[in-house]
Design a protein around this nucleic acid. Structure first.
Lengths: 164, 164
DNA sequence: GGGCAATTGTTGTCGTCAACAACAATCTTT
DNA sequence: AAAGATTGTTGTTGACGACAACAATTGCCC
């Protein structure tokens, strides 16, 4: 249906000069509505900003939180394993871990079995910090719930469960 | 529930050295499952990549497509109006339009009413190109449908309709 | 009607992030 | 032992969001 709409000639309203649309932005999105990617992108931006705002006091961003969570749940993982599990590049994970190690949340321990790799662990400080972060993340999740509705959020999680 | 899970001590499996997990990555995500933001981010990455791949031959990225679509549906808009409608910064839109204008898809016409602003229009070439892009975008949308299911996609669009 | 604030497009900087490429050190395979 | 693959690291490139500053222009206010 989107393809057929492409043949529709654009309605030339306000084609002379810049738009003078009172104030209510009644600007049509045309084919953009109906594109899952656009809706998801806008939603993702919203969720990202709310997360950053809610976890702003502890200065933890979404990616950092995901790294800490995975290490906390699976101590001893290699950087490669973490990167693959979270779908981030190992090159990028290096900087993330540099930062988290500098803040004393994470330790890189040289593996005896494979001297190329590092076993990743949370420090004691990292454990207690992560517990706090999880509380704030739960607060953020409640914000999401308030934004789109309780059962909508659950349905969304169900639909996208395959991507985690 | 996510908050209570934070108190659960991490099970120390494979804590000596780097992980030796056969091959099937059975790495727990712990609290990450249940976070809408994480699922949405992963899904957004997938959708983004599929869009870029499907529209790869015509070298159109999602943001460019959204700009062309809005201009095509609302000829004469100012840059400010387009930027506000799509939630991108006007500073960023400048470069986007530079590129699209260079490729002869878009024209910046100096407005007579407000000599500060430009009225944005598609060129004839831009119109036919956009029609082609819409066809490819529809193909991409079918990929999404194949990935998450027809009614799941529709439900997703309904849930996130407020963000467009 | 004159002056001041706001708006528009533009340029620039900074930091995040994905995608590569190259490299040394270290396994693994043959 | 030699060749090839993997792991962590460094660096580059380009898209992107967030700001800040600026000139030109418009709108508002007194």
């Amino acid at each position: 249906m989107t393809a057929t709409a492409a043949r529709t000639p654009p309605r030339k309203r306000a084609s002379n000069g810049a738009a003078r649309r009172s104030e209510a932005d009644e600007i049509g999105l045309d084919a953009l509505v109906g594109h899952a990617g656009y809706a998801v992108r806008r939603f993702q931006i919203w969720i990202f900003q709310d997360f950053v705002r809610t976890l702003g006091d502890v200065e933890i961003r979404p990616t950092q939180y995901s790294v800490l969570t995975v290490i906390g749940a699976n101590p001893g993982l290699s950087q490669m394993a973490v990167a693959k599990r979270l779908g981030i590049e190992r090159a990028r994970l290096v900087h993330l871990l540099d930062s988290l190690e500098q803040r004393k949340y994470v330790k890189r321990i040289k593996s005896k079995e494979d001297r190329r790799s590092h076993a990743l662990h949370l420090t004691a400080q990292g454990e207690t910090a992560l517990a706090k972060f999880k509380g704030l993340a739960a607060e953020h999740e409640r914000n999401v719930e308030a934004k789109i509705g309780k059962e909508n959020r659950e349905q969304l999680l169900r639909i996208l469960a395959g991507f985690t």
